[in-house]
Simulated scan of single mutants.
Amino acid sequence: MYVLPELPYAHDALEPVVSAETLRTHHGKHHKAYVDKTNELSAKAGLAGRPLEEVVREARRTGDQKLFNNSGQAWNHAFFWECMTPDYQPPSGELAQAIDRAFGGLAGLKEAFVTEGVNHFASGWAWLLAGADGLKVTSYHDGDSPIVHEDGVPLLVCDVWEHAYYLDYKNDRKGFIERWFDQAVNWAFVEAQLTAANGQGQPFRYPAPERDAPSGGAGAAPSAPR
């Protein structure tokens, strides 16, 4: 059984960039719904118990669009939570150097990232990836994810579905992404992903599925956090 990962911070820790109300709704309702549906659909597909990354890739390979959408969204959201922190620190070291080479500095990356997110039509995700030719910005629609493409290793993502920002920013997607980029990005996590992309350490993986326990019995699996 795939579990809803707990947030790495309190619901109100990212205010005023992201409100506690938004996080409770986004994490406890939207993300939970994707995880619950993934559990249902992966069992039907005979994929229950496999790492979520494998489920996403297999669903895409077989054309199981419902499973792909839900498992991809479950994975993307878990990655997104790690990309934010209440203790903002600007990028440094190897990451800052890579940003300088690719974008001429953090301001250049911000311009490229915000433009990509704002111009992405309808629902989706804005990504920073590390590829063979260095860092690049791209976006994917709906539940699509870089883990099923050859574009590069994901370093950073911003959710540009309306449910990620509408309670706080209404239809001002640009205002949300700009404020998010300036104040909430967890550059330490981004740097760890870059280090993994360069062959040192492991990149982010979704929490391993838990073994299902007998209903109501001793050792029953805990309910997903709200």
Rank of each mutant, 00 (worst) to 15 (best):
P154L: 02
F204E: 10
N198R: 13
V35D: 03
V118D: 00
S42N: 04
S123R: 04
D168A: 05
E21R: 13
D142I: 13
C158S: 07
N76W: 00
T195P: 15
Q183N: 06
E111K: 00
G175P: 03
F181K: 12
G117L: 00
F189N: 08
K174S: 02
S19Y: 09
N70E: 10
A78C: 10
P146N: 03
R179I: 08
L4E: 04
N39E: 12
K174L: 00
H141M: 13
L194Y: 12
L23Y: 14
P16L: 12
E53S: 11
H120K: 02
Y169W: 15
D172L: 04
R50Y: 01
A98Y: 06
A74G: 05
Y206Q: 07
D142F: 13
K44V: 05
H11G: 05
R211H: 08
S42I: 04
L106I: 10
G46I: 03
D159Q: 07
T25F: 08
G216F: 03
R211S: 11
P16N: 11
H120Y: 00
G46F: 01
G117H: 00
T195Q: 15
R205T: 14
A78E: 06
D133T: 05
P5D: 02
S123H: 10
P203D: 10
L23G: 11
V153I: 08
G217L: 10
A188W: 07
W127K: 04
D87T: 14
L106F: 03
D87V: 13
A126H: 00
G216Y: 05
L14G: 01
A197Y: 11
G104R: 14
F79L: 05
V17K: 06
D12M: 08
E58Q: 15
G134S: 09
H30Q: 09
D133M: 01
R179K: 14
E162M: 15
R226E: 14
Y206P: 10
H77P: 05
H77E: 15
L67A: 02
A13I: 01
G93N: 08
V160R: 13
S71M: 03
Y166P: 03
Q97K: 10
Q73S: 15
S92R: 15
M1I: 11
V55W: 14
V157Y: 06
R205L: 14
P91G: 09
A33Q: 11
W127R: 06
L155S: 13
R179N: 11
L95M: 04
L67D: 05
P146S: 06
S92A: 08
G72M: 01
A197K: 11
A10K: 09
F204H: 11
K170I: 03
